[in-house]
Amino acid sequence: GMDVRRLKVNELREELQRRGLDTRGLKAELAERLQAALSGPSSG
């Protein structure tokens, strides 16, 4: 899988935006949010 901790802030935001998620917050928050999205149930 993707290691969200290795991504830069702008990369985290890009991935979040692609999934329609909130791109605001600290890098740690963005990484946590993206990780949750990646490990969560895949819809679609």
Rank of each mutant, 00 (worst) to 15 (best):
G1S: 12
G1M: 11
G1E: 11
G1K: 13
G1V: 13
G1W: 07
G1A: 12
G1Y: 06
M2Q: 08
M2F: 13
M2T: 08
M2G: 07
M2N: 07
D3L: 08
D3T: 06
D3G: 06
D3F: 03
D3E: 08
D3M: 07
D3V: 08
D3Q: 09
D3A: 07
D3W: 07
D3P: 06
D3N: 10
D3K: 08
D3S: 07
V4H: 05
V4W: 04
V4A: 06
V4F: 05
V4S: 04
V4T: 07
V4N: 04
V4P: 09
V4I: 11
V4M: 06
R5L: 08
R5I: 08
R5K: 13
R5N: 13
R5W: 07
R5T: 13
R5F: 06
R5V: 08
R5M: 08
R5D: 10
R5A: 12
R6A: 11
R6H: 12
R6F: 09
R6N: 12
R6G: 10
R6V: 07
R6W: 07
R6K: 14
R6I: 09
L7V: 03
L7S: 02
L7E: 02
L7Y: 04
L7H: 03
L7M: 15
L7A: 04
L7I: 04
L7N: 02
L7D: 02
L7F: 05
K8R: 10
K8G: 15
K8Y: 02
K8T: 15
K8D: 15
K8L: 09
K8I: 05
K8W: 01
K8P: 08
V9P: 05
V9Y: 11
V9L: 13
V9A: 07
V9T: 09
V9W: 08
N10Q: 14
N10F: 06
N10D: 14
N10E: 15
N10Y: 06
N10W: 09
N10C: 13
N10R: 13
N10I: 09
N10A: 14
N10P: 09
N10H: 14
N10K: 14
E11H: 04
E11D: 07
E11G: 03
E11F: 04
E11A: 06
E11T: 05
E11N: 03
E11L: 04
L12N: 00
L12H: 00
L12F: 01
L12T: 01
L12R: 00
L12V: 02
L12M: 06
L12E: 01
R13A: 03
R13K: 09
R13G: 02
R13H: 04
R13W: 05
R13N: 02
R13F: 06
R13L: 08
E14G: 06
E14H: 10
E14C: 11
E14N: 09
E14F: 10
E14M: 11
E14P: 00
E14K: 11
E15T: 01
E15N: 03
E15Q: 08
E15D: 02
E15H: 07
E15G: 01
E15P: 00
E15I: 06
E15S: 03
E15M: 08
L16A: 03
L16W: 00
L16E: 02
L16H: 00
L16Y: 00
L16G: 01
L16S: 02
L16K: 01
L16R: 00
L16P: 01
Q17F: 11
Q17Y: 10
Q17R: 15
Q17H: 14
Q17N: 11
Q17M: 11
Q17V: 07
Q17E: 12
R18G: 05
R18S: 07
R18E: 06
R18L: 11
R18I: 09
R18H: 07
R18W: 03
R18Q: 07
R18M: 07
R19D: 04
R19F: 04
R19L: 15
R19P: 04
R19H: 08
R19W: 04
R19N: 05
R19Q: 05
R19M: 13
G20I: 00
G20W: 01
G20V: 00
G20M: 02
G20D: 06
G20C: 06
G20S: 03
G20F: 02
G20K: 03
L21V: 05
L21D: 03
L21N: 03
L21Q: 06
L21K: 05
L21S: 04
L21A: 05
L21M: 08
D22P: 14
D22L: 04
D22Y: 00
D22S: 08
D22R: 05
D22I: 06
D22N: 11
D22M: 03
T23P: 11
T23H: 08
T23F: 04
T23A: 04
T23E: 07
T23V: 07
T23L: 00
T23R: 02
R24T: 15
R24Y: 04
R24L: 11
R24W: 04
R24D: 15
R24F: 05
R24G: 15
R24H: 15
R24Q: 15
R24V: 12
R24I: 13
G25P: 00
G25N: 01
G25M: 02
G25Y: 00
G25E: 02
G25I: 01
G25A: 01
G25K: 02
G25L: 01
G25W: 01
G25V: 00
G25R: 01
L26F: 08
L26H: 15
L26I: 14
L26T: 15
L26P: 15
L26Y: 07
L26A: 15
K27E: 14
K27N: 05
K27D: 07
K27P: 14
K27T: 08
K27M: 11
K27V: 11
K27R: 11
K27S: 07
K27I: 12
K27H: 14
A28C: 12
A28W: 14
A28Y: 09
A28I: 08
A28R: 11
A28S: 13
A28L: 06
A28F: 08
E29W: 04
E29D: 09
E29P: 01
E29S: 05
E29L: 05
E29K: 06
E29Y: 02
L30P: 00
L30K: 00
L30V: 01
L30S: 00
L30T: 01
L30G: 01
L30H: 00
L30M: 06
L30R: 00
A31C: 14
A31V: 15
A31Q: 15
A31W: 07
A31K: 08
A31P: 01
A31T: 08
A31F: 08
A31G: 04
A31M: 15
A31S: 07
A31I: 15
E32N: 09
E32F: 06
E32K: 12
E32V: 09
E32M: 10
E32T: 09
E32Q: 12
E32I: 10
E32W: 05
R33H: 01
R33M: 03
R33E: 02
R33N: 02
R33T: 02
R33Q: 02
R33D: 02
R33L: 03
R33S: 01
R33G: 01
L34Y: 02
L34R: 00
L34I: 02
L34F: 02
L34K: 00
L34S: 00
L34A: 01
Q35S: 10
Q35G: 07
Q35R: 13
Q35I: 15
Q35M: 15
Q35D: 07
Q35T: 10
Q35P: 01
A36R: 14
A36D: 09
A36V: 09
A36Y: 05
A36N: 12
A36F: 05
A36P: 02
A36H: 11
A37R: 03
A37W: 09
A37N: 06
A37E: 06
A37D: 05
A37K: 03
A37F: 11
A37M: 05
L38I: 13
L38V: 08
L38Y: 03
L38M: 10
L38Q: 05
L38G: 03
L38D: 03
L38W: 03
S39P: 07
S39R: 13
S39F: 09
S39Y: 10
S39V: 12
S39L: 14
S39N: 13
S39G: 14
S39A: 13
G40A: 12
G40S: 12
G40Y: 09
G40W: 08
G40N: 13
G40E: 12
G40F: 08
G40T: 11
G40I: 10
G40H: 11
G40Q: 13
P41Y: 09
P41Q: 14
P41D: 14
P41G: 14
P41L: 14
P41M: 14
P41V: 14
P41H: 12
P41R: 07
P41K: 12
P41E: 15
S42E: 13
S42L: 10
S42V: 13
S42M: 10
S42F: 04
S42I: 13
S42W: 02
S42Q: 13
S42D: 13
S42K: 11
S43N: 13
S43D: 13
S43I: 13
S43Q: 12
S43K: 12
S43H: 12
S43G: 13
S43M: 12
S43T: 12
S43P: 14
G44D: 12
G44Y: 09
G44V: 13
G44K: 12
G44P: 13
G44R: 11
G44N: 13
G44H: 12
G44C: 14
